[in-house]
Write a protein that binds this DNA or RNA. Structure first.
Lengths: 118, 118
DNA sequence: CGAACTCGCTATCATTTCGATAGCAAGTGG
DNA sequence: CCACTTGCTATCGAAATGATAGCGAGTTCG
């Protein structure tokens, strides 16, 4: 059984309690999970579109993430490709503020590293 | 060089562009990174307090995450233990809504799995 | 038909990360 | 000195990730 999918209510990687927030953190704490959601917020994408949008993430990993996100009702797949479900869109709306925050964060780090003496 | 710390502006695991949001997603997309931030939002904790709060995460991993989060100016360490920096607190404020969202999400999944016929 | 293409993967295998356990060096208090 | 806490490091097996190759199904165009 090589794949365990994080689900609230059952133990997952690192979390034995299955508390929803821990299951969510486990799900999102895997490589490219957040990136895939971020990319899909711009509309549906095919598997290969997603792959190139995510800087060439390997199909192995991409497929695993998509399976997990589908099992978690965050993404779905139809004739137009992969897309966010309503649940996924709601999650993205929480994620969106991370964009501007990351830019400020980058500035903060840059300043800190440019002025090593405080 | 066994440890690469995600930093905006330089390539990181999976991300060759170094775009701030991708560096952030890489940083947070590692086991227990989100969990550590979540736990520290309740105030300072010692290394061992954190370990038990995070369901016995191994010291190896905990120490790696703490190094990364310190290098990213999200957590800091002083006489009272580990705690969130101002930057870290700002990040947590973005993270906080994930708590209630995760609970709704858990309900959605439970309903879906309880009523398999749609 | 059938060659050329796209799409969604799977197979394989090396590298990296994680997870679990043991234990140590430094500091503190009795 | 001894016990105790804190913050780790060392070691090692298990699991996840990353990179590359390529396949089977469907569609399109001649």
């Amino acid at each position: 059984m090589p794949d365990k999918i994080p689900t609230p209510g059952s133990p997952v990687r690192g979390s034995k309690t299955g508390k929803p927030i821990m299951a969510l953190f486990d799900l999102l704490g895997r490589s490219w999970a957040l990136g895939v959601i971020w990319q899909l917020s711009n509309g549906p994408k095919t598997f290969r579109d997603l792959q190139s949008a995510c800087e060439g993430v390997s199909p192995t990993v991409l497929n695993r993430r998509l399976k997990e996100l589908k099992a978690s009702a965050i993404v779905a797949h139809d004739g137009n490709g992969y897309h966010l479900t309503d649940t996924g869109k709601a999650l993205f709306s929480l994620l969106q503020p991370f964009g501007p925050w990351a830019i400020d964060w980058a500035k903060t780090l840059e300043e800190r590293d440019t002025l090593p003496d405080a």
